[in-house]
Nucleic acid binder design. Structure first.
Lengths: 246, 246
DNA sequence: ATAATGTCGATTGTCGACAATTGACACTTG
DNA sequence: CAAGTGTCAATTGTCGACAATCGACATTAT
C-alpha cells in the first residue's frame, strides 16, 4: 500500500569504485552484501516510521522494491528478527514489531542496567581521548539544539550514550547495547516531544559528564540512572497517552 | 572432514503427528521451520565441541548432511551469526567463532552486569513460586553432583542462573542473557574442570539462594559478583593455560 | 630461489520456479 | 439466520541452477 517506491532511495550500485591502488587506504570497499544493505534500509524505514508497527512485510513486494530476488530479502528479514525489529510467524511472514508499554519499560530498565554497568567500568578505564570525544559530542548536542533539528539531536544523543558504553572497553557490552538501542529507536520519534527546549535536553547530560570527568563512579551512576529513568517515564507516559505507536 | 554423518541425528520429520483433537492441547505442533531446526543442531554441535572453533562451515556440505538445500542452511547460519556463535566473511563463508581470552573476560564481565541487575530486580519482584523453582533447581544441582554427571550439572547450573534472571520479570533481559549464555556455552566444556568436587560447585550457589530468600539485595549482589568472578577468573586462567580452545 | 602473475576448481551470491500452506470468501446445510 | 465446509488466490518454504568471486597451485620472469 501507499507509494512504496520512494520508501528507499538508492540502488544496490551506490558506490562506483574504479580500482585499488594500495592496501588499507580505502575504507570498506566491500559495502556489497545485498543482505546487509537491505537490512539497513528496512531498519531505517522502521525507525523513521515509514513502516508502521504491525505492518506486514511481504517478501515479494520488498524484493520488487529493492530490485532483487526474495532470497536476500528473507535473510535480511531474519536478521532483523534476531534484532527484535520485526517478528516472524511461520507460514505467515514478517511483521514490523509492535511495542507495548511494558516492552518500553523493559527496554529502558535493561538499558539502565547496561549503561550503569558500562559507566562503572568507564570510570576506571576511560582514556583521556574517550573523555575528549564525549566532550566533543556534548558540543554537538548543543549545536543540534541551536540548529533546532530534533532528529539530528536524537541521533547525537544516541551517539553520546554509545560513546559512554565504548569507554567501558567491553566489546560485547556495546554489541548488546546496540541491539536494544535499535529497539529504542523504533519508538524514538516520541522522544522528540519530550523536551520542549532542545537546550534543556543537551543540558541534562552535564551532570553525567561532570561525574565522569571527576571519575566519581557513584555520582556518575546516580546521574545516569536519573537521566535514563526520566526518559523512560516520559516515553512510557507519552506512549500510553497516545495509546500506542507513532 | 571427519565422519560428519553422525554429527547430527534425527531427520526433519522427527515428530510424526496424526491430527488435532481440540485446541491448545498439544504443545507447539509446528516445531517445523527447517531453519530453526538446522540452527539448533549446528548450535548444539558447536557448544558440544563437535565443531571446533575456527572450523569452516561449508553450505553445500551442511545442506548435504541435513538433506536440504542451501537456502535454509544459509538462513540458519546468519541467525547463528547474529547470536555470535559463528562469524561470517563475505564471499568466504561461515566459520565457527574463535574465542580469545579477552572475549571470555568481556563476556563474563557483561554477565556480571546483567545478572546483578537482574538480581536487584528479582529481590523486589520474585514471587514465592520463583523462589520455589530456584530451590528445586538447587536440589537438581546436588542430584547431578550425586550422579557425577558434569555435563548435566553444567546444564542445570545454566538453568539456575537463567531462572534468577527470569525472576527479574524483564523479558528483554532474559533475551540478552540467553545470547551471551550461548557464547559462554561455546567454551563451556572448560568449566567442567573448574570444580574437582561437583558438590562444591553446587554449594557455591548457597549464599546466593540465602540472600534471595532474605530479600537482601546487597548481599545477593555481592554473592553473585563473587560467584561469577570466580568462574570468570578460573575459566580465563584455564583458557590461557591450555592456550586456546577445547 | 623468490616474487609476481596466470589459471582453475571450489564456494558463495543470487535468481526464478514449483509445491505447500494460509486466510478469506462464497457456498451449502441444519 | 448461523454454523460449518469447500474453493481459490496469495504468500511462504524449499529447491536446483547459473554467474561471480576467492584461494591455491602452477608457471614464468627477475
Amino acid at each position: 500500500m501507499a507509494q512504496a517506491a520512494c520508501l528507499w532511495q538508492g540502488s544496490k550500485r551506490e558506490l562506483g569504485f574504479s580500482g585499488a591502488v594500495a592496501v588499507s587506504v580505502f575504507s570498506e570497499v566491500s559495502s556489497n552484501d545485498l543482505v546487509t544493505q537491505i537490512a539497513r534500509q528496512i531498519t531505517e524505514a522502521i525507525v523513521a516510521g515509514r513502516l508502521k508497527p504491525g505492518e506486514r512485510l511481504t517478501e515479494l513486494q520488498l524484493s520488487r522494491e529493492f530490485g532483487t530476488s526474495r532470497a536476500p530479502v528473507r535473510e535480511a528479514a531474519r536478521l532483523l528478527e534476531s534484532q527484535g525489529l520485526v517478528t516472524f510467524s511461520p507460514r505467515r511472514g514478517f511483521f514490523v514489531r509492535t511495542l507495548e508499554a511494558s516492552d518500553l519499560r523493559d527496554i529502558y530498565e535493561l538499558r539502565i542496567g547496561l549503561e550503569l554497568h558500562a559507566a562503572s567500568l568507564a570510570v576506571e578505564r576511560a582514556t583521556d581521548k574517550d573523555i575528549e570525544l564525549l566532550e566533543r559530542q556534548m558540543r554537538r548536542l548543543y549545536d543540534m539544539a541551536d540548529a533546532d533539528s530534533i532528529e539530528a539531536q536524537i541521533f547525537e544523543d544516541f551517539a553520546f550514550h554509545r560513546m559512554l558504553c565504548m569507554a567501558s572497553g567491553n566489546a560485547r557490552l556495546i554489541r548488546v547495547y546496540d541491539e536494544i538501542a535499535m529497539e529504542m529507536r523504533a519508538g524514538i520519534t516520541l522522544i522528540g516531544k519530550l523536551y520542549d527546549d532542545p537546550h534543556r535536553m543537551a543540558e541534562t547530560h552535564e551532570p553525567i559528564m561532570s561525574a565522569l570527568r571527576d571519575r566519581d563512579g557513584e555520582r556518575l551512576r546516580e546521574a545516569l540512572r536519573y537521566h535514563i529513568a526520566v526518559a523512560r517515564d516520559a516515553v512510557v507516559a507519552l506512549f500510553e497517552e497516545t495509546g500506542g505507536v507513532i
